[in-house]
Computed example of a mutant assay.
Amino acid sequence: MGAERMSKQRVIFCDFDGTITVNDNIVAIMKHFQPPGWDELVQQVISKQISVREGVGRMFALLPASRKQEVIDYAIGNVTIRAGFQELLDYCRRENIIFYVTSGGIDFFVYPVLSAFPIPKDHIYCNGSDFSGSHIRIVWPHACDEHCHNDCGMCKTAIIRSFPAEAHERILIGDSVTDFEGAKLVDVVFARSHLVQLCEDLKLNYYPFDDFFDVVKRLEEMK
């Protein structure tokens, strides 16, 4: 197994909201602006009554596009980066591990927040936004392909599948409902929050983590 692992290229798929950031930014935006009905939509997504794509799309459609700058300023200003993130990126660079951000978040806060870090833009996957109408419209440049029917919005499994298991050791870092399907595909999961229970239930190969220093330590042990 050791020799086989050595011959495979390691690649990390890292969630953004609640993983790279301490809080869930979409929920934080909704809590702050309080559009009527948002909390019910969150509950419906968590309980899987509606898909992530439908829930997120409907939540943002509750906010007028005229509040664009307020929403953007709040989203960016509210972000706290989880400890050890820069150290993880440094480790990946030293160890030749490919690093992708696979986010169910939205471009207007994901790109500005990550611009502080040396991550190529084409290694960041997230949803888009359109403020040209009366209300905010979320657009889905990375929607599910024919192999995924979860209506994820930003389909992490499609991105993971583009790195064949025969050639890659695939590692997912995440915390929540948008990471569930991807966690089932990869070799190793680093999990927080809701994702820990899923990994327990499905007996996946996972390690719990609090911050990215934990992740670096474990990656070093896995070498």
Rank of each mutant, 00 (worst) to 15 (best):
residue 5 R to K: 15
residue 5 R to E: 03
residue 9 Q to S: 09
residue 10 R to C: 01
residue 12 I to N: 08
residue 12 I to E: 03
residue 16 F to N: 05
residue 16 F to K: 02
residue 25 N to D: 12
residue 26 I to L: 11
residue 27 V to N: 12
residue 28 A to I: 09
residue 29 I to C: 08
residue 30 M to R: 06
residue 31 K to M: 14
residue 35 P to W: 07
residue 36 P to S: 12
residue 42 V to F: 07
residue 43 Q to F: 10
residue 45 V to F: 01
residue 51 S to A: 05
residue 53 R to T: 06
residue 54 E to N: 11
residue 54 E to F: 08
residue 59 M to Y: 04
residue 71 V to S: 01
residue 76 I to G: 08
residue 78 N to D: 14
residue 82 R to C: 12
residue 84 G to N: 06
residue 87 E to G: 15
residue 89 L to F: 02
residue 96 N to P: 12
residue 97 I to S: 06
residue 103 S to D: 06
residue 104 G to A: 13
residue 105 G to C: 10
residue 109 F to Y: 12
residue 110 V to D: 04
residue 111 Y to Q: 11
residue 112 P to S: 09
residue 112 P to A: 11
residue 113 V to H: 04
residue 117 F to L: 08
residue 124 I to G: 00
residue 135 H to S: 15
residue 137 R to A: 14
residue 138 I to C: 07
residue 150 N to K: 14
residue 151 D to N: 15
residue 152 C to Q: 10
residue 153 G to A: 05
residue 157 T to G: 09
residue 157 T to E: 04
residue 157 T to K: 02
residue 162 S to A: 13
residue 163 F to P: 13
residue 165 A to C: 10
residue 167 A to V: 00
residue 179 D to A: 08
residue 181 E to R: 13
residue 182 G to C: 09
residue 187 D to V: 06
residue 189 V to C: 10
residue 190 F to N: 01
residue 191 A to M: 04
residue 191 A to Y: 07
residue 194 H to N: 13
residue 199 C to W: 03
residue 200 E to Y: 11
residue 204 L to C: 08
residue 209 F to V: 08
residue 210 D to I: 14
residue 211 D to P: 14
residue 214 D to V: 05
residue 215 V to Y: 06
residue 219 L to A: 02
residue 219 L to C: 05
residue 221 E to H: 09
residue 221 E to M: 13
residue 222 M to K: 01
